[in-house]
Nucleic acid binder design. Structure first.
Lengths: 183, 183
DNA sequence: GTCACTATTTATAACTC
DNA sequence: TGAGTTATAAATAGTGA
């Protein structure tokens, strides 16, 4: 933005590209920070230069950025729904189609919810006791199927792996137990 | 940045805060876009105004932003290590302490890796056959413990829940099965 | 709330060391 | 490389319709 108007296209010259990248990255981070402070907004920037070892991120606190990202991820489906609805009404498609779409998306959301609960329980993040009673029967159904499948896979794998049948890769499974926390 | 220099602090006046937020959000997105185009850099911005229904994000493509975020998340541990090492060398702490720290972090990373594998297997995202042979014995150890714990919790819960013992909330578990995909 | 307007502040491209 | 300088482009705070 100075000395000359720059047109919005990849800067071929590596030197000036580097300079621009460095200056603008700094500027972008500053702007992100300012917006966040001035308006008390959750904002994050992730800038991932191809040759850099480390992405420039803001906020610099790992915890804070994870909170913002997971916030984004958790609600992403909802926003997708909202966006699709907006598009629907803009293009004035009839109401029935919209309702069908909502139903489909809600169904998908429901499945994802159960999916997440199952994951949380199977990984110990939450216990069955914490689950809303309404979700219990669905949950236990999925959970039991999941358990069966894992048990089956464990059993099958136990049979196959005894005579070392892992293709052509060298196996060190039997000796790696000793140093399993110090690799 | 105009008419008057603004100081970097929360804008108390709601009206002007809204105006600033809207203008600067637009600006920030534009800058993110420009940096990305000019220097061919992966950059993303997530701006999450508290009263907004939808976060402003760039790039607008869901797939693209997920790629950048997961890129960040996947390598986040490594960067943390790197950053801590940088700090170490800056503050000129002795080499032994640094090595100890690296070892601790590697140990932690190893545990997290196994943890992730277990989650993937228990949720069906990957199969035991896909796991690197070196990781197998550690993995199976953790996996079996996890299975036992879930089985135990399922059993205990089965006993407790038969006579409806979920506190004072109304339970509809037994009837919710019929509509479990259309909530 | 949202568009223009515009006086200023800020960001930064080109340059130098 | 990186840090500083400067002229100019861009962003935007305050304002009014």
């Amino acid at each position: 933005m100075a000395r000359k108007k720059v047109k919005l296209a990849f800067i071929e010259n590596a030197t000036s590209r580097k300079a621009t990248s460095s200056k603008r990255t700094k500027g972008l981070v500053k702007k992100t920070q300012e917006l966040s402070v001035l308006c008390d907004i959750d904002a994050c920037a992730i800038i991932f230069a191809k040759d850099a070892q480390v992405p420039v991120v803001w906020p610099s606190s790992e915890a804070e950025i994870k909170r913002i990202i997971s916030n984004y991820r958790d609600n992403s489906d909802m926003y997708q729904l909202q966006r699709q609805l907006d598009q629907q009404s803009l293009s004035e498609v009839n109401v029935i189609k919209t309702e069908e779409k909502v139903e489909r998306i809600q169904r998908k959301n429901r499945d994802l919810q159960i999916e997440n609960m199952v994951t949380d329980i199977m990984t110990g993040k939450s216990t069955i006791e914490q689950v809303d009673p309404c979700d219990l029967s669905d949950l236990i159904l999925v959970l039991e199927n999941r358990m069966k499948s894992v048990q089956h896979r464990l059993k099958v794998f136990g049979k196959n792996s005894n005579p070392r049948s892992q293709g052509d890769r060298t196996m060190e499974a039997s000796t790696s137990g000793a140093n399993h926390t110090s690799q």
